[in-house]
Amino acid sequence: MSHPRHDLDPIVHTPARFSILALLAAVDRAEFRLVRDTVELSDSALSQHLTTLEKADYVTVRKTQTGRRTTTWIALTRKGRTAFTRHVEILNQIANTDPPAQRAG
């Protein structure tokens, strides 16, 4: 039987991207600055991760204009939500696995 870690999604597995998806899974949509500040990333690092997630069709990025201010909204897609949920399931499986018993010397 293979270890559940082999089923982890490599796109989601990166800690920053996992945190981004975790945040987005809790809301309908979140503003760029909230994600940046909560996940503790720079603007450029967050943009790079978002590009990767957007290419995988896991998130959508939408800019809206309110008066003079441009707001960037980030939302999870259905595919992204499924991938994140699956990833969390596997992490839960791993977290509940006991480490292999050490052989007595």
């Binding site: 982890l8 800690p15 996992f18 945190s19 987005l24 809790a26 909560t38 992490l91 791993i94 977290a95």
Partner: peptide
């Protein structure tokens, strides 16, 4: 990914989700 790393990742997910909520 060790069980400890998985638990840490899940704890981080809970933290960011609480902040988002």
């Amino acid at each position: 990914t060790s069980p400890e790393q998985a638990r840490a990742a899940l704890a981080e997910a809970r933290r960011v989700q609480e902040r988002a909520r």
